[in-house]
Design a protein around this nucleic acid. Structure first.
Lengths: 213, 213, 213, 213
DNA sequence: AATGAATGAGAATTCATTCAT
DNA sequence: AATGAATGAATTCTCATTCAT
């Protein structure tokens, strides 16, 4: 069918774009390079995405949808317990499907441009908002259940988000020493500071992203 | 004197580069734009830095030195107490001189490229190592003094670094709602989880970067 | 076919390069000028030859192959007699297809740069060696047949080569007074000094390049 | 005195220009490079020669005068015998002061540009004319004295000039195998073909520029 | 007399985009 | 639906020239 091949090619090109950004960086990501990576011809990107900016925006949308779907799935699968849900989010955020050089380097590239590209910022911002809304809701349930009346769900969610993003950055700056399990423990440790009863038992008291597990 | 003006021009061009990256993003940072921003002529960048890559690398070096100097100064001024020193680092990292859109957008831009530019990565990596070495040393002293034998200074330092970087990113993604004081509290809250006796008293228990203070 | 047009364009650009060097000199041969001469667009040379140096080298290769082919053809057509073969080489070397302002000015331009461009020198050197090998072989046969035991084929070949090149230069320095037939006679006169019996009859005893024939 | 230093600087810059052309070729001969070679400052050339073309023209004039002076001196010193005079010219033309890579590469560079630069051509042409006038006059005396009524002095002079220039080119194309003495013998051999009685005794019958002597 | 910082026109090169096939 | 030759605007880089000191 027509739309099948159209959809196939678009995804093929988006994947090639991610590969190219990850390997050569944003600055050296040219349409030639993307087409070459996709093993297709020169003019193909303009054929499917009209412009380069179109391709980039759709790449970001693709990544954002994929990311959002992956933690929504994790939450859905974790059952009704909010502590399990939050832990599943951490597991996903720092798991190998999400937290790998290929994906993270693209995120950082887009973050870098989002300051000057309103479309990028809007998307990153919306993604962040959705993530915060979800984690905030889960955290609220933990607060309600655990009787942490003085805790601020929004603030805790932001703290978690910052730590996850910061840990992703470590992967960019020093990929050789990055340790996914240690990174997960760092997040859990953060949550244990806020919800001692709920998170204390999950891992050893303190660890961080660049330590061998 | 001759060498004075040479130094002056280099700094003028580096500042113009930072302004241009912050305003237009890495992708649209052209030498023309930088020269225009510096109110100098076309060929000036090649005259002072040979190549565009030369300018970018020196810009990163400039920022790195400036940043390193700023937290070293903060530590020096904070006196002998390690708790005060760590707090001074947070105060600096999230203070208006370091944590502002102009500077942070350049950091993120360089992080995004550091994957594909070994020179960038090396510099970012070294900076991170120096920062970790310093905070690790301070944290070790807190551990020794407070009797936290089971704590891991390196891991705590990494966690703090991730959180600070993650909070900087918030500034890129949603600058309007970013709150510097809330961000500082988020860091202190993290430290309070690790060193309850030392950090509990400094701020209110929980807060985060995008909350109005 | 695709490869046909590719070959066509390359040759079109090489011809345009030769025209440009001949008309404006090496120093003023810009890619813009070449593209304009070829009635094609700005970026075309980089598209087909990657760099300017690439174009220049291929132009030299093109000329070298053309030149080599032309005297090889002349030798082949001249039959088994070595005297006729040598005469055919002179006829070709100083004929209007080879010895004209357009071609010679390009040769001299490349000779001038060959000192500093190893690739140019290598090519010129190889061409010269091939030419010498061929003429040396022909001259050897004349020596053997004519009983000139004390003659040195290599030395005679070098002398002829020098004279031909020197006559080409005359075309550059004083094109108005250059006379192709007189130049041919100068060469034959040189050969007549070496092989009196073989070459005496071919032309009048003495003449040279800048004399009206 | 004022004119002393002025004269000194001009010559210093002309020598630096020759060095630069010889080492880097015409294309890479920039005023910066020349100034650097002369161990003087950037703007110095424009100060003394107004423009780059001015410098190049004066360099050519300098070389031309030097060359002309050298063979005029050789002729003057050779005494009244025209055969000795002609031999002295050959000795000079292919001697180490005139026939060396540094000088020859500059000559060839200028010849290459003379096609498109009328000023260069005029100078090269005038130099060639003077040389021919001188050698023609000497050759005429040999003709008169030896009774070679059918010989054409002008044609012989042109032949000699072509051979000398052609031998110079050998130095550019294959400097390693060039042999100055062999080159001289090649010229003498040429003259021996025209004036057997006068030149036969001077050297062995045949030799050429690229043969080990 | 000389310097060398600064300029800006022009050259090489890159690359998104177009379009005939 | 896809190609890839060709374009030309934009970008980096070079360098002759100027000029304040």
């Amino acid at each position: 069918m027509r739309s099948d091949i159209k959809h196939l090619r678009r995804e093929q090109l988006i994947e090639a774009t991610i590969d190219t950004i990850a390997r050569y960086g944003f600055r050296k990501t040219t349409l030639s390079q993307v087409a070459k990576q996709a093993k297709l011809s020169q003019g193909i990107v303009n054929f499917y995405f009209k412009t380069k900016d179109g391709l980039l925006l759709e790449t970001l949308e693709f990544l954002a949808e994929e990311y959002e779907a992956s933690w929504r799935r994790a939450v859905a699968l974790s059952g009704p317990d909010p502590v399990a849900a939050l832990d599943a989010i951490i597991e996903t955020d720092l798991g190998h499907e999400v937290c790998n050089r290929r994906k993270v380097s693209v995120w950082v590239a887009f973050w870098g441009e989002s300051q000057s590209q309103p479309q990028f910022r809007r998307l990153c911002s919306k993604l962040s908002d959705d993530y915060l809304a979800q984690t905030r809701e889960i955290i609220s349930r933990i607060i309600d259940r655990g009787g942490y009346q003085r805790h601020d769900a929004d603030a805790i969610a932001h703290g978690l988000n910052a730590m996850v993003n910061g840990l992703w950055l470590d992967l960019m700056i020093d990929p050789k020493h990055f340790n996914r399990e240690a990174a997960k423990r760092a997040c859990r440790n953060y949550l244990a500071s806020v919800f001692p009863a709920e998170f204390a038992a999950i891992g050893p008291p303190v660890a961080a992203s660049r330590r061998a597990g």
